[in-house]
Design a protein around this nucleic acid. Sequence first.
DNA 1: TTATAATATAAGTAAATGTTTATATAATAA
DNA 2: TTATTATATAAACATTTACTTATATTATAA
Lengths: 90, 90
Amino acid sequence: MTSKTDRKKAVQLFKALSHSTRLLIVQKLLEGEKCVNDIRDLFDVSQPNISQHLNILKFSGIVDFLQEGNLRCYFLKNPERIKKIIQAIK
Amino acid sequence: MTSKTDRKKAVQLFKALSHSTRLLIVQKLLEGEKCVNDIRDLFDVSQPNISQHLNILKFSGIVDFLQEGNLRCYFLKNPERIKKIIQAIK
DNA sequence: TTATAATATAAGTAAATGTTTATATAATAA
DNA sequence: TTATTATATAAACATTTACTTATATTATAA
């Protein structure tokens, strides 16, 4: 049986993935780390909005970033896990 | 690469699972089919609200039901898939 | 038939999430 | 230093989702 906190975490993760921009970001990051403007250029989405989505992904534990000069390069914290999840829902 | 419609479907599925009541319902249904009032009694949630959540789960293709007399017994359409998804997010 | 039990639906309201616009910060380049 | 580039944050507004309350439907039991 799953505990209450486990379930909250799961719900948060599902929420993080239940937006098409965020799901796309995650899929792109499966190819490797990308900095914000690279990600931004992939979609027709404003810079602040991308930042906000990245923040949600970060908060839910899906991504993290490394500061490289004035760039922030985001990457999946656990790409294998993400692959499994995406595979499972297909 | 995932198509746009695939992604929409995935997003819808994640959305359906990103609510703790619905995730709990789904976990309960892994034990076997249950009718609405059985489900309702498991939680502190109103009857209409349970119906609404079940409707969302039905619409997203996760559950279906069989009418048995005046009972509606809900079941998971693809329990293996659900198990995999839940396993993957852990 | 009428009453009751099980469930769904609809309308209204509340709460959460998403997007835009404007502004801030931090790192580098000039 | 000052300007510029990359990114974040905050506030306002829009949209979506959730929940409640009231009512409808459908099947069975009396």
